[in-house]
Amino acid sequence: MIEVSNLCKTFGTKTAVDNLSFEVKKGEVLGFLGPNGAGKSTTMRMVTGYFPPTSGSISICGIDILTQPEAAKAKIGYLPESAPLYDDMTVRGFLEFAAGIRGLEKRAKDDAVEQAIETCFLNKVAHQAIDTLSKGYRHRTCLAQSLLHDPEVLILDEPTDGLDPNQKHEVRQLIKRLGETKAILFSTHILEEVDAACSRAVIVDQGKIVANGTPQSLRDEYKMDSLHDIFRKVTTADTAA
């Protein structure tokens, strides 16, 4: 459902993403790991059609995002890294706006908003102004936005960032559940989440894939028990360079 091949992105002279290829099929949850600045968010911004790639191709459900951006974007639900929101709206107002943009109307729109509020536990704050929300609630509101249109492809940039332990657990369960019927690509710095939610993991470092496989196959390959050790082995630490 997500097919990425030979993706490159350079900013000026700096290469952020270097010849990346991977695939996420329906029913798969791909964990996207890597140190800070590895190029995870940049890759996701390209896959969602926000950044045009320097070179390479991306197709979403068989639709090329470069030639048919609107059709491809309609298939995607996206949670950006910074969980951006319109501060002057209420949670419900914002979700209604996003649902409207997604082409939902009347009953379908109300149902979708209700469902998203339910799924992300936003009942308590549904009528609150967004600029008065706590960080975790902001994050959940933006996550809710990505689920409204029941997309076939979900791209979540650090979906559990800033959430309390209960909510982290809920979101992992949610990702796992949704992953049965969708293709999900999500990035994280919490390696426990790989075991908890992912069917496969990719580790990127300096824009390149350095490891790719199911959590078990990674353990077998590197003959290590802990994903932390594997992560440390395959990526270059800033402190070393």
């Binding site: 926000y50 609107e70 974007k73 996206y78 943009i101 082409g103």
Partner: peptide
Amino acid sequence: SNTIELLGTFPI
């Protein structure tokens, strides 16, 4: 506020 990233990834 970076909401431009939302607008840029909406199908519009």
